[in-house]
């Protein structure tokens, strides 16, 4: 059975995008090891509400690691210490009695803080709107099996498509670059035959939008890949670079 642990929790509090933030420190006692990290925050919030105080605001939704909503920077890692897992999938048994756990929001100019640990990631939607699609109308398509796609290509596209849009790549990047996200989306669509006709246009449009929104330049540190909860590879970034350069040379 899991043991209970007690630890110190330092949580970033910030009232709004323009306000000055600070850390609040809480002492957490006897938290069972099978509590998820977010459930631990639920416990904290219940205690705060009981004391008549405002709870800590953080984004979360599905709590099974797929919606990409949760977004905490825990002890220097986006989504905490585990690899290939989101914050909601971290269980307290990963921590030790007496630890100091520091929780911060994603910090990036592209993701302004809304409140406490909640940030605004609508920039990702805007990048998608610039070209993250295949232009096909409803009801127009041919039979699904009319397009044969070799399994390795389909699998590679699937790996790129497993991106959950959580923003950990930007949070991890010392340059605040969104290249892993953009490249994953571009790769998924550019790899597939259905996406080929618009491949170059897509690479240009999505990259231009990313640049416009103030994300940084990729310097290939690979921090994004290391912290990505879905282990999306930077080979996607190489593919985006390739497609983008190709597009520009063609122009």
């Amino acid at each position: 059975m899991d043991k209970n642990i007690s630890f110190t929790l330092k949580v970033w509090r910030q009232n709004g995008p323009k306000e000055k933030g600070h850390f609040d420190t809480f002492q957490m006692e006897d938290i069972p090891g099978d509590t998820s990290f977010l459930e631990m925050l639920d416990i904290l919030n219940e205690q705060l509400i009981e004391a008549g105080k405002e709870p800590v605001v953080f984004d979360h939704d599905c709590r099974e690691g797929i919606c990409g909503m949760c977004s905490l920077y825990i002890n220097g890692h986006p989504h905490g210490p585990a690899t290939g897992a989101t914050t909601c999938q971290i269980y307290m048994r990963r921590f030790n009695d007496g630890d100091v756990i520091t929780v911060e929001p994603w910090r990036s100019a592209g993701f302004p803080v809304i409140k406490d640990l909640m940030v605004d990631r609508s920039a990702y939607d805007k990048i998608m709107q610039a070209g993250g699609f295949i232009s096909v109308g409803t009801g127009a398509p041919q039979d699904a099996n009319a397009i044969l796609i070799p399994k390795p290509i389909a699998d590679e596209a699937m790996d790129a498509a497993s991106c959950i849009g959580c923003g950990a790549c930007v949070a991890a990047c010392k340059n605040g670059s969104a290249m892993l996200f953009v490249s994953a989306k571009v790769s998924q669509l550019n790899l597939l035959p259905q996406g080929k006709p618009e491949a170059l246009r897509r690479a240009k449009a999505m990259l231009a939008k990313m640049d416009e929104l103030g994300f940084g330049n990729c310097t290939n540190t690979r921090a994004c890949e290391a912290e990505c909860p879905k282990c999306v590879s930077i080979s996607n970034i190489a593919r985006l670079n390739r497609d983008f350069i190709k597009a520009k040379l063609k122009d």
Partner: peptide
């Protein structure tokens, strides 16, 4: 059936056999 056609056209990476079919 239209749904599958639609989703494939949108680039949904459904699992495939080695022959390339769904």
């Amino acid at each position: 059936n239209n749904i599958i056609d639609q989703c494939v056209a949108q680039g949904v990476p459904f699992a495939r056999e080695y022959g390339g079919t769904l």
